[in-house]
Design a protein around this nucleic acid. Structure first.
Lengths: 252, 252
DNA sequence: CTGGTCAACTGGCCTGACCAATTAAGGTAC
DNA sequence: GTACCTTAATTGGTCAGGCCAGTTGACCAG
């Protein structure tokens, strides 16, 4: 609560600055950036630092680095404020609401297309999940496999990716710490039952039923979430700052 | 077709290798990686290369770098195969199919919630779009604003972000080159008409109509896309490799 | 047992250098 | 004059070695 201190690493500051110049249009899309050596001089930092900043921007998809040629602006929308940078992200409830909307539509569509092989894949995830409700990490993995498995029925890689990405957002430090309070064998078993209902509706080709079951599942998930520690949200301010990660605390 | 050669940049190969070790569980979540100097020695590369690879993984959110302490595995799912790395990504048709599914659901939901202010925002995007159909960049921006604007009606930041991200995927070099073949004032005007239909349905609170209009829009978009150069897909093999970008070709 | 000091790591950053890919200018053969 | 080849300048990719600053845990004084 005292001093933010923060002292961001230099290459991140450089990345931020260049990103800003791109966003403001000062560096137009398609334009070539100054050479690394020039950038280093203009910014008064060393070339390795500039390189590291540019790699950040490249991973974010903002620039395209071409050996021997130069560095080009690809697009200006930050779009994917990716990875670690996405810490100040939407809250858990917002995420669950979004998942409800999207995954319901996916479940609805999947119900009309599911083939025996697809159902077998879902079943595999379900049995696996049932066997590891006591393993916090493994059960999450099975949970994820089930949700992406439904998207896989449609056979669209983008849908699989988006579903997985939204699921993984619960892995952020902030979310993870909250989750540890209410996730346990009991709640996982309840979630598993809801999964089974979804699976059955899809297997039966019942689109409306699958949609409803998915909605019920995510609504219940949200409810479990809020009931267990709704009060924590009032005193929450320092979000994902998990200092002193208290390593040995697995399960108590 | 000859030699893959590939010659991927070294730091990417290193990043891939470490990512693999994380995905396979060889490096468990929470575990500390060897020091940069040790990694460099084990991998027979220099420390700057290792650093660049680690920065990639940090931006992707897989590891957490803590100064003076070490590098820790945060999660194992690649999740966001972000930015430039997503080049070998889903194809345009797959993307449009995913957008249809998701944005239809969003439009449907938005129709039931839209307030006058929201409609005004959409109208702003529409008029702006109408005024810049000749500016390839500006019109894209207005297009984007319309689609994210619909998501904004629901008031869920995650939905806005996901919608924007999927839209931005057309900015990848591969997609952009294809798009330049068929995007023009004429097609943009048609897209604008379809936008208006969506806007009207939402403004009228017609959920089913909004869903249908959105589906029609994205289906037409897909059709425009395939008709203009469907044949290109047969001879397409080298995807986003855009050699010789033919800089001056804007509009012809 | 508490508190402070100190030394050993570890990441952050820098200098300077060389290699490889790209690109364009210039030269040569036709 | 044109087409092709050669060549040199430019630019990113990688390396080596070094110093600084933050972190951590062991050790020691109180």
């Amino acid at each position: 609560m005292f001093s933010p201190v923060e002292s961001r690493r230099l290459y991140r500051q450089v990345a931020d600055q260049i990103r800003l110049m791109i966003a403001s249009g000062e560096l137009a899309v398609g334009q070539r950036l100054p050479a690394e050596r020039d950038l280093a001089e203009q910014l008064s930092v060393s070339r390795p630092t500039v390189r590291e900043a540019l790699i950040v921007l490249e991973v974010e998809g903002l620039v395209n680095i071409r050996m021997g040629s130069g560095i080009y602006v690809v697009r200006q929308h930050a779009a994917a404020v990716t990875g670690a940078e996405r810490e100040p992200v939407e809250g858990p409830f917002e995420l669950l609401q979004a998942r409800a909307l999207i995954e319901c539509a996916i479940a609805e569509e999947a119900a009309g297309r599911a083939k025996p092989d697809d159902i077998a894949l879902l079943d595999e995830a379900l049995t696996r999940m049932g066997g590891v409700v006591n393993d916090a990490i493994a059960v999450l993995d099975a949970d994820r496999a089930f949700h992406t498995g439904i998207a896989a029925i449609i056979g669209n890689a983008t849908l699989i990716r988006v579903t997985g990405e939204m699921f993984d957002m619960r892995m952020t430090p902030y979310f993870a710490r909250l989750a540890s309070h209410f996730e346990g064998p009991t709640t996982w078993r309840r979630a598993l039952d809801e999964h089974r209902a979804i699976r059955d509706a899809i297997a039966a080709g019942d689109a409306a039923g699958a949609k409803a079951a998915m909605r019920a599942h995510l609504t219940m998930s949200q409810k479990r979430f809020s009931e267990s520690f709704g009060e924590e949200f009032s005193g929450e301010e320092e979000r994902g700052r998990n200092k002193r990660p208290s390593k040995g605390t697995t399960k108590t």
